[in-house]
């Protein structure tokens, strides 16, 4: 039996597919998972003036802001990926996003902006502070995966053996596998690859909107604070959805895998028609040539 739930959060649609034998039990579990996602939406939203992120952004340049352990650990994770990716993933890119009109409002060249280099985290006091008034947290590149981590934790703890959760089709948490299969099969929207996931999280980062006829798109490169042209996509697979999200965001900017990326996190990066797939991704990812389809998936 399959039970499906859905909600709108973090500017996208989350869907949950739970498999098991007791419909009422599955729905109750799904509701708890939905509530976990809603909770993170309330806490991490950039657009809700009462969210924890808004609180930090409002005061972080003036003084140290104390946050709870969960939020601090998430920011510490973001800091680690920022450092390891050479700044290609940046959770303080809010000012740049607004400057270039990437957050719904018109572009404003006068917006103050500074990246994660202006963020100070104090692990002893659980505080966040900005050394530059232009710094603004924007967890859009990690929040969906983090919320799915929490939701998947709820589903696992309840003992549900097979479930697929996704946020906006780009962040995915797979629990177990549908009966008789090796894993949850997911095809990339580009048609250039497919995933087979079992007890793994995945994130797919591909530019959307503003795509030229040549297939190029402009996204913000946090290292320069300016838009760059991207002609491909990135796929990251690992245990943590938050890390998968952050690294997928970084790889679509860099176009290749940084040396310091943790080896246990798998990646596949496509630039134009060429995929670069990291070792260990054979089970989880298969590249498809243009026009090629997977017969099993199509069936």
């Amino acid at each position: 039996m399959i039970v499906r739930l859905a909600l709108d959060a973090m500017g996208t649609r989350f869907e949950l597919v739970l498999h098991g034998g007791d419909e009422f039990f599955l729905r109750a579990v799904g509701e708890q998972a939905v509530e976990a996602i809603r909770d993170e939406h309330r806490r991490l939203s950039l657009f809700d003036p009462a969210s924890h992120i808004s609180r930090v952004n409002a005061s972080g340049a003036a003084r140290s802001v104390t946050v709870d352990r969960d939020l601090f650990d998430l920011l510490a994770t973001a800091a680690a990926v920022w450092e390891q990716s050479g700044g290609a993933f940046d959770a303080a890119v809010g000012g740049f996003m607004r400057r270039w009109g990437h957050r719904g409002a018109p572009a404003d060249a006068g917006t103050l902006a500074a990246g994660f280099g202006a963020v100070r985290l104090d692990p002893d006091r659980l505080t966040v502070a900005f050394t530059d008034a232009g710094a603004a947290l924007d967890l859009g590149g990690i929040a969906k995966g983090y919320a799915l981590d929490r939701a998947a934790g709820v589903v696992r703890a309840a003992g549900v053996g097979a479930a697929l959760l996704h946020g906006g089709t780009s962040s995915i948490a797979a629990i177990g596998a549908p009966p008789g299969t090796e894993g949850w099969r997911v095809r990339l929207k580009s048609g250039r690859g497919e995933l087979c996931l079992r007890d793994r999280s995945a994130s797919i980062s591909a530019p959307s909107g503003r795509v030229t006829e040549a297939g190029a798109a402009h996204i913000i490169d946090p290292r320069t604070g300016a838009p760059v042209e991207v002609r491909g996509e990135s796929v990251v697979v690992g245990e943590s959805g938050a890390l998968a999200d952050a690294w997928a965001t970084a790889l679509v900017v860099t176009g290749d895998r940084p040396d310091r990326m943790p080896p246990e996190i798998g990646s596949a990066v496509r630039v134009n028609d060429d995929w670069a797939v990291s070792p260990g991704m054979e089970q989880a990812f298969r590249a498809l040539a243009p026009g090629e389809t997977d017969r099993e998936l199509d069936r």
Binding site: F24, F25, R27, A28, V29, E31, Q32, A158, G159
Partner: peptide, 9 residues
């Protein structure tokens, strides 16, 4: 629209 039910094994 909610079950008002909390799951537990």
């Amino acid at each position: 629209k909610t079950t008002w039910r909390f799951p537990s094994n």
